[in-house]
């Protein structure tokens, strides 16, 4: 068997040699095709930077302005999938979410859903339950904070 392999290799390389020797009759213009650069990051669609534990400070009473702003974002971009009760629609209902989750977890889920679904075990568990990847809804970090405030109010924080 060894013998066969050696022969095969020898003959194959002869064949290859013939190809290369006769194939290139002109000047060598072997220019490697260079792929264009990776997609630049300056896009209107935003993926936020990670919010760390401790980045978010919760205060009482709730910030009423943020609650109002958060509510209108909810109606535009979240309501289709999340009820304010504990009933699951496409995603989980919001009742109790601020008690179940850390504030930075909630904000990352809103602004960095791709990262969360890749790295966070709890987020992955939710995907297994709901089967629909939570969409990136182009929400900024500040807006996600406003949504969080609205969630707190929904959970009864005054």
């Amino acid at each position: 068997m060894n013998c066969t392999k050696i022969f095969a290799a020898a003959i194959l390389s002869t064949g290859l040699f013939l190809v290369t020797a006769c194939g290139n009759d002109g000047a060598k213009t072997e220019e490697k095709v260079i792929a264009a650069d990776e997609q630049p990051a300056t896009q209107p669609e935003s993926h936020g930077t990670e919010v760390k534990a401790g980045d978010v400070t919760l205060t009482t009473p709730v910030n009423a302005e943020w609650v109002t702003a958060g509510k209108s974002i909810y109606e535009l971009k979240c309501q289709s999938c999340h009820k304010l009760t504990d009933e699951r629609l496409v995603g989980p209902g919001w009742t109790g979410v601020t008690k179940r989750r850390e504030p930075h977890w909630v904000m990352n889920m809103i602004t960095n859903v791709e990262m969360m679904l890749e790295t966070d075990a709890e987020a992955q568990k939710l995907l297994e339950q709901c089967l629909v990847r939570m969409p990136n809804q182009n929400i900024s970090k500040d807006e996600s904070r406003q949504i969080l405030e609205f969630m707190r109010q929904n959970d009864g924080v005054k």
Binding site: F7, I11, L12, T14, G15, L18, V19, C22
Partner: peptide
């Protein structure tokens, strides 16, 4: 070997 030889000749 025969097959490989033929291949080499044909290719060449």
């Amino acid at each position: 070997l025969t097959a490989l030889g033929l291949f080499a000749i044909v290719t060449g």
